[in-house]
Structure formats: structure tokens, C-alpha cells
Computed example of a mutant assay.
Amino acid sequence: MTLDQNVSLDERLSQLEALLPSSRANLRRLSVLLSSSEQPKVAVFGKYNHGKSTLLNALIGQEIFKVADKRETLSVSEFIHDDVTWIDTPGLDADVSGEDDRRAMKAALESADILCLIHNVKAGELDRSEMQLYQQLMRQDSNYRSKLVLVLTQIDQVTPEDLEQVVSEIRSQLPDLQISKVSALRYTRGIHEDKNGFIKASGILEFLSYLNTLKGDVVELRQKEAQRLIRKARVELTELINDRKNSLRSATSNMEKYKKGFWFDVENARNKIVDRAVKLDLM
């Protein structure tokens, strides 16, 4: 397959996907980066029943995303609020087939500028699946560290001492990860009852302040990420071209050896025929 120069950018990226199937997620992310508006996209994802949708509803101030004890978020959904596109994703580890996880990771890897990994503080330290998720993101792009926030939810349901113990355990697992500690319940109650004490104690204001810092850097981060992905695609395409050239050289060399062997055999056969004809006095 060759790249057609007389096609649109999206078509060209699709052609590259066919050539570099292992880079599909990167190329689709690149397509998003090159066509995105200035409005930042924030993906909220994490394990099933850890408070993703509850947090989103508190931040938006409306019951937009489904909240229930059973698995409700089955697909990726988006809502625009305060110049931000919020993305709710299916809960991880809830679907035996793994389809929910694939949808969530696709949204995180391809669509989002900022990633919020939600973790219920009552669960203690990050479990193996959450650590694997973080490692997968780092393998995709080590710079995810600069736009990933771990959000500890339901801090109102543990003691301050237990909260700090969990934070300490998680920091030992992932020392460089930004951590926000929030209570959607306190925040919602503070808003409804006009009680600033609950709002301040919720941790939501600090979380939003940090998000605003990241939002201010989105345009620059997108440009840098696009440049990295383009460089990576170029390297991989160059490696592919070199592999194809090496394969062609090898095939050409084998063909030349075959041709030489073929004509050597032909010459031997001709000589034998001539010798036989001479012996039979036919020449």
C-alpha cells in the first residue's frame, strides 16, 4: 500500500493506520488533535461504582450522568459545561467481555486532553487493574503524567487519619501522580444549602483550580503532543520503509541467486546434451 498524496488529512491518516496498525490509537489521537477546537476535553474514568458519574453531576450541577448501584454507564457520553467537554466512560472491570474497558480506554487515549482517574478512597490503595491501567497509559505516552489526575472520592466517609494513610500508600505506588481529594456529597450539599464550609471541605474547589491550570495549557499541550505523535509516526514509518527495503533487497538477492542457479543448471544440461550428441556421432 502507498500513501495517496491527493487526499484529505483524515484519509491520509486512515491510510497510515493501514500501514501502521500498532499505532492506530496514536494516529486517531493525532487526528483529534489536528481538528480539535480550543475547548478542552476532560475524560473521567475509573472502576465501576467508584463515583465517576456522581462527581460529574456535582461538578455540572445537574443530574446528567446516570448514578446507580448497578452498572449504568454502558457507553461514552459527553456534556459541555463551563467551556469544558466532560466525558463519562463505562466503569472499568465491570464487564466480563472487556468491551466497557475498551470503550473507556479509547475515550481516554483518543479524545481527552485531561484524564481524571477516579478512585474510591474506601478501597484503599490502587489495585492491580488500576496500576495496569496507569502503566498502559505510560506505555502509550509517558507525557500522560502531566495531564493525569488521580481523584480520590467519598473522602467524607473516612476519617482524616485513614484518608492520609490511603494517600500515603498511593504516593508510594505512584510518587509523581497528582492527587485530588474530593467529596461530591459535601459539595452538592454546600451548593444546595448555601454553606461555604461544606463547599470548602469538599475539596472540589482545589480540584477545579488544578483543572483550570491544566486547561490553560491545553493548546500548548496539544501542539507538543501532536509534534511527538508526528515524530513517532515518522520514525515508525521510516522503520517500516527500511524493513520493506531490506525485504526487497533480500528478495532481489535471492532472485539473483535463483537466476544464477537456473542458468548454471541450463548450461550443465546443454553441455551434457552436447557431450552425448558427440558420443553418438550426432554432431
Rank of each mutant, 00 (worst) to 15 (best):
11 E>G: 01
32 V>K: 12
11 E>H: 04
8 S>K: 04
12 R>E: 06
12 R>D: 03
20 L>Q: 04
33 L>F: 02
26 N>C: 13
22 S>Y: 13
19 L>P: 11
18 A>V: 12
34 L>S: 04
33 L>T: 01
33 L>C: 03
31 S>T: 03
30 L>E: 06
36 S>F: 00
30 L>T: 00
31 S>D: 04
36 S>I: 01
27 L>E: 04
35 S>N: 13
26 N>M: 14
8 S>Q: 07
23 S>P: 06
25 A>Y: 10
16 L>Y: 03
14 S>R: 15
15 Q>C: 05
12 R>N: 07
17 E>C: 15
9 L>V: 02
15 Q>A: 10
11 E>C: 00
13 L>R: 13
21 P>S: 10
25 A>R: 13
27 L>F: 02
36 S>D: 13
17 E>R: 14
35 S>V: 00
13 L>S: 12
23 S>T: 02
31 S>C: 02
17 E>S: 12
36 S>Q: 09
36 S>L: 00
37 S>D: 13
37 S>Q: 12
9 L>F: 04
12 R>C: 03
22 S>L: 14
21 P>G: 09
11 E>P: 01
22 S>N: 14
11 E>D: 07
30 L>P: 10
32 V>W: 05
30 L>W: 01
20 L>Y: 03
16 L>F: 07
14 S>K: 15
14 S>H: 14
19 L>W: 04
21 P>N: 07
20 L>D: 08
12 R>I: 01
34 L>A: 05
15 Q>W: 05
19 L>V: 10
37 S>G: 15
19 L>R: 11
16 L>Q: 02
26 N>T: 11
23 S>W: 01
32 V>N: 11
30 L>A: 07
23 S>Q: 12
32 V>F: 10
33 L>Q: 06
28 R>I: 01
25 A>C: 08
25 A>L: 12
34 L>T: 05
16 L>N: 00
24 R>T: 15
23 S>G: 02
34 L>W: 00
36 S>E: 09
28 R>D: 03
17 E>M: 14
17 E>F: 07
19 L>K: 10
15 Q>M: 11
8 S>R: 06
25 A>I: 11
29 R>D: 02
9 L>I: 01
28 R>G: 04
